[in-house]
Write a protein that binds this DNA or RNA. Structure first.
Lengths: 224, 224
DNA sequence: GTCTATAACCGGATAGAC
DNA sequence: GTCTATCCGGTTATAGAC
């Protein structure tokens, strides 16, 4: 919070009291960057091309983001913030509730091709330990699996899930299914029904680890 | 088969009858390219850097592959050929046999970090319809799901799997799990035990769709 | 805040020497 | 087969004008 004051927190707000021009510009740059990282990945994306999409020059862009890497970091911070606000506001009371929420997340992602494709590309690229997003994605999966397995463990304790359920394994598996389905969906967004596939997975999974029924709504009723 | 005669089929073999120098060089280039596509993706990889790894110049490399795109295509063709020879030689008699085979494939992949990371990156990048590998990956998933769901359907017919099993859904889900686990494994190859995770998934899945037991070997016995 | 200009470098592909 | 030389263009980042 103290050493970064580029764009979002710094400068013009103090003197003028108006965010309109600068902050809207900043958001438009972030949106354009998502599309470019999705299509080109990080390394092959170009600040000049991103800037052109926004209607400014590369020099102008670098007034808002001090470097290409800074732009990437802020893109990831923003999308993560959107995710958390929407889907991880609090812990889930039951495993079923957790999966209903993940299904909603899948539907949300299925409505944003560029954003989802960007995550596919960056998560894969970040497998290189030298990639600027490597620490981010390592932490992201650690947290995701941790939050989910905690949720599942509470469901085991409450009797919703069978004793002896491998909660960490199921959490990692669920994250894997979501990512893998996204990969297939991005390759064929029209033909591949990602939310329905995830619903089928969740139902089969819950049927095999719950003590009673799945409690999952029918798929047509769950759709948006 | 008729208009491409670069490197693999063309030229020197006809006149000389010796493959040793040229073909070994070609294979070393392909191996180096795998590592570079893994680290940089397609667009940001550089022919000059790849050539340097092999000990030749960019001009020398382009003697073996007429373009960067040609290099990518031949890399994909080679790895796919290796895959098929190893794991899809014939159709599987039972669903269990199919999953035993996929577990072997997972173990195989877990021994090749660069190759696996390359597939993660290229599969994600190829979500862009303009990416040179887009048609390849679209076809790849179509075939994969087709082969697997055929196998599963035979298992339903034989009574191994429950009637009414959504074989296409299970096939897509299985492909998704493999890809998603690979993504997590590449981010943390030491800490994440991909084959064990896949084994746990296969066991849970088979337990929920087979009529009898899973028939899957215990994990330590299955390991290589 | 945005521009132009510039530094310093890297990209793929081609031509031709050997 | 491999090299060097070259073409033409693209890359990030910085400097300074307005």
């Amino acid at each position: 919070m103290e050493q970064k004051e580029n764009g979002r927190t710094g400068g013009k707000a103090a003197g003028r009291g108006t965010y309109s021009v600068g902050d809207e510009r900043r958001l438009r740059i972030l949106d354009a960057a998502v599309e470019h990282f999705a299509q080109w990945g990080f390394h092959a994306s170009s600040l000049a091309r991103i800037a052109k999409d926004v209607g400014i020059t590369q020099g102008g862009l670098l007034h808002h983001f001090r470097s290409k890497e800074d732009l990437l970091v802020q893109v990831l911070e923003r999308t993560e913030q959107q995710d958390s606000e929407r889907f991880f506001r609090e812990d889930f009371a039951t495993a079923t509730e957790c999966y209903v929420n993940l299904l909603r997340l899948t539907e949300y992602n299925a409505a944003r091709l560029g954003r989802t494709r960007m995550f596919n590309v960056l998560a894969a690229e970040a497998g290189d330990p030298g990639h600027p997003a490597h620490p981010y994605f390592v932490r992201r999966y650690t947290e995701l699996v941790s939050v989910m397995s905690d949720s599942l463990q509470r469901a085991v304790d409450s009797g919703e899930l069978r004793q002896g359920t491998d909660v960490v394994g199921v959490a990692a598996e669920t994250a894997a299914v979501m990512d893998g389905l996204q990969l297939q969906w991005v390759l064929d967004p029209k033909g591949f029904d990602m939310p329905t596939r995830f619903h089928a997975y969740a139902e089969r999974l819950l049927r095999s680890i719950t003590t009673a029924g799945t409690g999952l709504p029918e798929r047509p009723a769950a759709g948006g």
